[in-house]
Each structure stands twice: as C-alpha cells, then as structure tokens.
Design a protein around this nucleic acid. Structure first.
Lengths: 216, 216
DNA sequence: TCACAAACTTGACAGTGACTAGTTATAAAA
DNA sequence: TTTTATAACTAGTCACTGTCAAGTTTGTGA
C-alpha cells in the first residue's frame, strides 16, 4: 500500500502533475459509462481508473455534473460525425442522404448506448452549458438541413416542413431508443441480422415518413 | 425528537403495524419519482415520506430494485389503460383506434415522465420479474393487436406486418420521448398548444406510418 | 396464555459526491 | 539561481445512500 513516491511502479512514471488529466478523465469516464451504464456511474471510480485521487476531477470539472456535461458535448460531436460518415457512403440525392443520416443516428446509439442515454434521457448534463448547447444545437440543425434539402421549404419558416422534420426525428429516435433497450430483439431479431440486412430494414421503415414527392 | 410512542401526534394514529405499507410505499415512491426524477430517487426518502423507518421497505420489496420493479409493473398497467381510454373516445375503425392508442401512449408519457423513463430507459427494474414481464408483454401485445386490425396479416407470422408494428411503435415512442425531454418545445411549441391542436398534429404525424390501404 | 412469526426499528457498514485544508510541482519574477 | 505565486493534486471529513444484522413490537393460532 505505502508505495515509495519515486518508484516508477509498473513502468508507468507516475507524475504528480499528470499533464493532461482532463482528457484522461474524459476517457476514463466514457469507459466507466459504457462498462457500467449511466445509472451506476461513479466519479470516484473514474478517478481511480485515471489513477488519481478522488478529489482530483473537481479541479478540472467542478463536479460530476461538469464532467458528464463535457462528455455529453463530445458525444453530440461524435454523433454528428457518425451521421456524416454514413452520408459519405451513400448516394448524393437528398432522400438517400436523409436516410443515411438516420442510419448514422442509429449506428451511434447502438455503438454508444450509455452515452446515447446520457445525451437524450438524462438530466445530469447541464444543457445550459455553452459547449453542450452548441453541439446539441448543431446536431439538430443538421437534421433540419437534411430535411430542408428534401422539401423546398425552410422548416424554420414553414410549420408543415417542421412537422416533417419532427416526424423523421421521432421515427429515427424511436428506432434507436427501442433498439438499445432491446425491444426490437424479440419481434425482429435485429442484433442477429447481418448489417446490410438490418440497414435495409431500417431504410424501409425510415422511408415511410419521407414524402413521396421528394426527388429520389 | 423523542416522541412518546402512545402519543397520537397530529391526529393520525401511528400504529406499529401499518396494515398496508406495501401500497403506501408504492404511492410514496411514485410521488418521489415524479417530484425528483429517477436520477435522484432515494429509498430512504420514500420510507420517510411513508412515515416509516429506512429499513421497513426491505421487508416488502427486498431492495430498491424490488420496489422500482413493482412500480414499473404498475406503470405498464396504467399505460395500457391510458391507451384504452383514448380508444374509447375515438371512432371504432381500426385506423382511428390505432391512432388513438398512440395518443394514449403520448398522454401517459407526458403525464408520467419519470415513470415513463423508468419503464423504457432504465435498467433498474428487473425485467425478469414475472409481474413486470407480464404487464410489459401485454402492453406490447396490445400494440400488435391494434396493428393487426389494420392489416389482415398476423405480425407474429408475417415479417412485413411486424415491420409495420415496429414502425408505428418507433414513431409514437420517439414522439413521446422527444416530448418529455423538451425537444419538441423549441421547434413546435407543443406544450403551449391547446390539447386538441396538439392531438391533431400528433395524429397527422402518426398517420404517416400507417399504410393507406388500411380501411379508414 | 403462550409461543411463534410477521412487521417494523435501530445501528452499523461501505460506498457516494462535495468540501476544506494541506502538499507538491511548475512557471514567472527577482 | 533563488524566490514567490499559483496551478495541480492529495487526504481527510461530512452528510447521504442502500444493505445487512440484531433487536423490538404486534398480531395470530395452538
């Protein structure tokens, strides 16, 4: 227990000043999150994982809320990237692009279920935090833009177009949420399906809320 | 602090044996849940609210998980009733009935947001618990039945029909989830709308995933 | 009335997040 | 190079959490 400070331990030099503890804590926090889920998330466990004392995180993130808020903001940024990634692989017409965005949405949820829960179903992140507000907003704006490319109308000025946006969002969000809670398993067996087959099924469902008059 | 045991206190006779503590605890738990949300739910606070010691709940529900599992089961039962209630007010054709069920789904979420979260986005309830499994199952079966009345096919034997079920479920669930997390507020201003107007908007959205060939 | 079990209380334990005071390293000023 | 200030981190404490073990009260059936 009583380790000599100057000892290098297991080859990892243990400096008093970590150098980049903030990033290290975020990494540890995400690892804890995906291993244990948000409901048994512990700040002390994160500190232990990062190899620092339980009081250390406070200096960088004030409190648990601060750490989770930062992690959530990063989540939204990666969330948008997951959608962009799908879009790069898809055809360039607006309809295909919107569907691809939806598939990216679901990809992200399936690959980061706990983080997804933190982003969409938790009150722990401080939504008034500037960075979080910006990244969450840009995720929503992306959705609006994708939808706007299908209709001629700007959803921010056309209530009907905004209804289309919300319909698409709700459908895709619902698919993602039901998926990660295991509720699609018994009826559809989605996790056992090959990805291509699953994508086809999701695409089929998503297309239902996209108006036919949209250019294919 | 040291109260005389035989004192009647504030007119409520305080018996050692409560008589129906289990129900009382469930009531208290739901009150705590809706006041504080699931993320700061405390068993001790529930016990205090029910006017009983912190150890008392264990005798009826084993642990927190047990209490929340029971509450979740009750939630699903009320959830189905909320849908039935809407259906009684609606026209009797299958399409109207399915839409009504969806509106009831959303009603329930809006009126019991924390409970809804517990039911659909938490791992605290023990889903292998028999009563919970049964009530959750019957909620799903209701959805299947409502969808079955629209198509001729039985979703349990027709994969296409099951896709319809999941599409409807995902859309309605997504609407409910986005609604209670406040994400429909800025784009649509739903909470400020009159109920009839909001119902009309939701109905419009829900109808998009219901095939046209369904008898009106 | 007597024993027994069910219902409930009480006290203890380890774990949690937050706070305070103290320690160590780094960087800027002399 | 030495001094000084401050940022980074540790360590101890507090109130609170859920769980457990042991004790007390009450109701019930023999």
């Amino acid at each position: 227990m009583t380790q000599i400070k100057t000892s290098l331990g297991n080859s990892a030099r243990k400096k008093y000043h970590h150098g980049d503890l903030a990033s290290e804590l975020l990494r540890a926090a995400e690892a804890e999150l995906s291993e244990n889920g948000i409901e048994s998330f512990s700040l002390r466990a994160v500190a232990k994982r990062a190899g620092v004392s339980h009081g250390a995180p406070a200096h960088h993130f004030t409190d648990v809320r601060g750490l989770l808020t930062a992690l959530t903001a990063i989540g939204y940024e990666r969330f948008v990237r997951a959608q962009n990634h799908r879009q790069q692989l898809a055809k360039s017409d607006p309809k295909s692009q919107l569907v691809a965005s939806g598939l990216g949405y679901i990809d992200f949820a399936m690959q980061n279920p706990a983080l997804f829960r933190l982003m969409f179903s938790s009150e722990k992140p401080d939504r008034s935090n500037e960075r979080l507000a910006i990244s969450a907003r840009s995720a929503f704006d992306k959705l609006v833009t994708d939808a706007q490319n299908i209709h001629d109308a700007d959803p921010y000025h056309d209530p009907i177009a905004m209804m289309d946006v919300m319909a698409t969002w709700a459908l895709v969000h619902g698919l993602a949420d039901l998926m990660i809670s295991g509720r699609m398993e018994q009826p559809m067996g989605f996790t056992q399906m090959a990805q291509l087959e699953r994508d086809a099924a999701f695409t089929d469902i998503i297309l239902r809320v996209i108006p036919d008059n949209a250019d294919s």
